[in-house]
Nucleic acid binder design. Structure first.
Lengths: 155, 155
DNA sequence: TTACATTAGTTGCATATAACAACTAATATA
DNA sequence: TATATTAGTTGTTATATGCAACTAATGTAA
């Protein structure tokens, strides 16, 4: 692959990252939650029910960070903690009704943004975009996955 | 566009965001700079020379935040401040030699990551990916751009 | 069964990130 | 010249995050 094309691709990647970040930030602000809360809320809603450890792993953050983020969600009435029924070390986290409302709202808005996006692009290109997004997501994740849970540094 | 396909696309988008974030974070840690410093450093290196205001606009952050980030880059010997030659209100920021080294290293690593990515994907798909990345970046940016410099809320 | 190891979660502490408001210095304009 | 505007800095505050030390619960081995 031509180095120039790689540079162009990376530039596009950064633009996508920026655009997604802007959308996330906006949704978080609009729903009265912070970005960290928003990301945790989406993962909890998607999983239905999970532990702090699982949540931390999904987001690639420390369990202490998530412990506190969940604190704030619970205080805000968005999530609920309940002791694990079998193993009492585990705590089961799920969305409270208010959290589910915010969860749905974030998805609705993001669906609207993406629908807008597809409407601006000729229909014949849609399949191409879906396929490319899948290829990029899957392959890029594998190419950076080694960094997960480590700095990836070869010191 | 089919709602199911939009959900799939959004999932891919989040995976891409996560992968890019992981790569950024790793690069920053490896080069001994923080994420905020890393982003500022890339913009300064790319522009060659710019002001605090321009830098803040490029990153979508407050000028006070960038004033402090540049402080830390200067303290670390990565960037240099020089008074604007014509208008002394403007301060010209550019990379110091050490900053250029880090800048090149970050680009080299990201180019390697993306090369790896393309190597894992059949050559006949490469053009498709470049085209789709361009379409997504350009169109998605327009669909979220309204949020820039505002919460985008209709309260 | 008891002692030790492991695991999940919480808390203390340090640092990074970021916005807003108030301020200073320089420049532009009426 | 007096006032307004602009770029940048600093004070203050809030959020975000990781590491280390800790507690409580569970598993394991002597």
């Amino acid at each position: 692959m031509n180095p120039d094309q790689i540079m162009i691709f990376r530039k596009k990647l950064r633009e996508i990252e920026r655009a997604v970040g802007l959308g996330d930030k906006n949704e978080a602000v609009c729903c009265g939650v912070t970005l960290a809360q928003c990301h945790a809320l989406l993962e909890i809603g998607s999983a239905g029910e999970l532990s702090i450890k699982e949540l931390a792993a999904l987001l690639g953050l420390d369990k202490s960070t998530l412990s506190r983020t969940v604190d704030s969600l619970v205080e805000g009435g968005l999530a609920e903690r309940s002791p694990g029924p079998k193993d009492r070390r585990f705590i089961s986290i799920r969305l409270a009704p208010k959290g589910k409302t915010v969860y749905r709202r974030i998805h609705t808005t993001w669906n609207r943004i993406c629908s807008d996006m597809f409407r601006r692009i000729p229909a014949k290109k849609h399949a191409l975009i879906i396929e490319a997004a899948g290829l990029i997501a899957e392959t890029l994740t594998r190419c950076t996955f080694g960094f997960r849970n480590s700095t990836g540094c070869r010191k």
